[in-house]
Amino acid sequence: MIYPTIFQKRIMWGLLLICQFYSCEKVYDAPPTELEAAFSADISIKDLRAKHVMGKFEQINEAKSIVAVVVADDASDNFYKTLVVQDSTGGITLRMDGIKLCADYPVGRKLSINLKGLWLGDYGKLIQLGAGVDVSDPANPSLVSIPQTLFDQIIRKGEILHTIPAIKVSITALNNNYQSRLVQLDSVEFVPLDSAKVFADFANKLSVNRTLRSCNNNTIILRTSGYASFANSKTPSGNGAVTGIYSVFGTTKQLVIRDELDLHLNKARCK
């Protein structure tokens, strides 16, 4: 009634054009699941460990890689900025400068680690891989953790395995070849003094050593961080199998569990 027809037409035309412009709402494609192709190792962890002299630091200059599976991550915070990986020949501890590593590198994930530029070192004789050496305290040089920005450069990710068999071993048989490997000790229990005690000092965030013993009284320390989510839980009083990562501090043998599910102590204690 008001507009001349020609105006109406032009306006309609304009509106249509605009609608055409804006009808495209952004929809993003979900990316495909592309896992890295199967990879093969150039060097075994055993051979890599053999390059290390205790107390020294060695840089790896060859473009070699190990292929390993994650056996311990930081899901329960008992391991901190650390991944423990193993292949069929041995295990090694990776010093990783990141938190919530378990999001990207959960237990069971296969990894290919490019060693070029990384450093071997040890902390209390526990052999570790890092990205440099910190000499700010010349008396106590230490390994520098791998910066988070370099994770994707150094580590390629593979599939996630759902079961990793632990190596069954006795306390006495444990030696440095078992370092950073997932081991299972059968028929062990916490010594009476350490039974039904908290794993660690959660309030003060202090690590605590508890002692495990076999029925023939061989002992090993079970060390737990005060930051572990289960630090405030009580150690079980029964006897049975304990799975964990074998570790050392100097000459002290230690076992570190990933979480409470590593303990199967529901049988009767030793006589």
């Binding site: 530029g117 990205a131 440099g132 910190d134 700010s136 520098v144 910066p147 920005t149 370099l150």
Partner: peptide
């Protein structure tokens, strides 16, 4: 990072 090599690498 404090290590110059790592700074450069990153």
């Amino acid at each position: 990072q404090s290590d110059p090599i790592l700074k450069d690498w990153i």
